[in-house]
Design a binder for these strands. Structure first.
Lengths: 215, 215
DNA sequence: GCAGAACCGTACCGTACGGTACTTAAGTGG
DNA sequence: CCACTTAAGTACCGTACGGTACGGTTCTGC
């Protein structure tokens, strides 16, 4: 069953603390370590309470995703006056934030969890992650891109497609490699450079004709 | 332990048939359905044989990845004379092949399996998939890109980075969405169009200055 | 034809997990 | 002070899985 209305998927502070413990457990030990007894032990609560609050194990997983999504808030850009440089700066900041979010251990653990459950039936977890994760951060990008197009600094037909292009240039196969467990401690330090290069390429593709960054 | 030398990771025909059954089982029911008893039943062999041949469950998983990788052979391009149009055509074919491979159910199932095991210790599975999957198809792309640069149809400094750009433009977040279980039956029919657009964008970025596709 | 290996089918064992029931301590309103 | 509610802690059950052992059958070399 769906976790109530989208406007109020919140839980009590105690339950949030339990979900926090569960997330820590998941990050540390992977899905295999995320047993109901383990969650109860880590959160100093009883299994019976877990089942009363969340229904069953899948309910706990769903609640964890919703809880984590509620923590990551996408602040809207104050729609200042966009110049060529400020647009590029905003895009670079967005790109770096995107890389940082995707490389976060909680994000990686939740994505691994949802992917592991994807092959099963309904499962909803993948859909939830997609909805709360990508849709949110995509909205922020979409607003930024639309603002850029409105002031004629960007040119594209489909906003979704433009966002897909930006996403691909920024992330490439980094996300998958991180999900597969590749060590990214070195690559993380070059996220800023990577973000700049990706944005430059994106502006070359979707920027106004005469406004390329480096002539 | 590693699965013998890289030159001879092959198994007997009977064992290959068992691995084939195991792959089918994995594709149909996900990792949860991939039990030792299930594999034995599906392949009409005994569990004892499984443990004699592959050591333990992880050995079966490793063997499945190696077996699947041995089936997907990357044929080298006959280095014909590249023209502007033939380069673009080759790139489009490569892009479409890449999308088809990533969208294949066996590929998706194995990636889900490796990602699920990534949080655990050593695990090697992610590394194996990376090595056999991406490296192989990346070599094919690298050869194509190098050939294009040699005849001055492409311009880039780092081949790996250029391949990353092409990959990002082609795949974007499609792979992750497929791994999360999103229905792609509709999107599959537009793979060709997607490949063309991605290659056009790539040529705009890395193609020779005056050779853009559509003036 | 026979000895030995390879192998299938099945039964078995220990463990671990999801889920439930029960007991006990702590808070709360009247 | 006393019902009443909430939840912690524990014990328990059924099941399912990884791994092993054993009897029976087919294949192979001599």
């Amino acid at each position: 069953m769906l976790a109530s209305h989208l406007s109020q998927p919140e839980f009590s502070p105690r339950q949030n603390a339990v979900l926090d413990s569960a997330l820590r457990l998941l990050v540390d030990g992977g899905e295999k370590a995320l047993t109901t007894a383990g969650v109860a032990r880590a959160a100093n609560c009883s299994k019976e309470s877990l089942y009363k609050w969340f229904g069953d194990r899948d309910g706990i997983l769903s609640a964890m995703i919703g809880f984590q999504a509620s923590k990551v808030r996408t602040f809207d850009e104050g729609s200042e006056r966009l110049t060529n440089e400020s647009l590029r700066a905003h895009l670079v900041v967005f790109a770096r934030d995107l890389l940082d979010v995707l490389a976060g251990d909680v994000s990686l653990a939740l994505n691994r969890l949802a992917i592991g459950q994807a092959s099963r039936d309904g499962s909803k977890l993948g859909q939830m992650l997609q909805e709360h994760g990508r849709r949110q951060i995509g909205k922020r990008a979409g607003a930024l891109l639309d603002a850029g197009r409105r002031v004629r600094l960007l040119q594209f037909d489909d906003g979704e497609e433009a966002y897909g292009t930006l996403y691909g240039l920024v992330v490439s196969d980094l996300h998958l490699r991180m999900l597969l467990g590749e060590d990214m401690s070195r690559a993380k330090q070059s996220f800023s450079l990577r973000a700049e290069r990706a944005v430059d390429a994106f502006l070359l593709l979707c920027g106004s004709k005469k406004d390329t960054v480096k002539p």
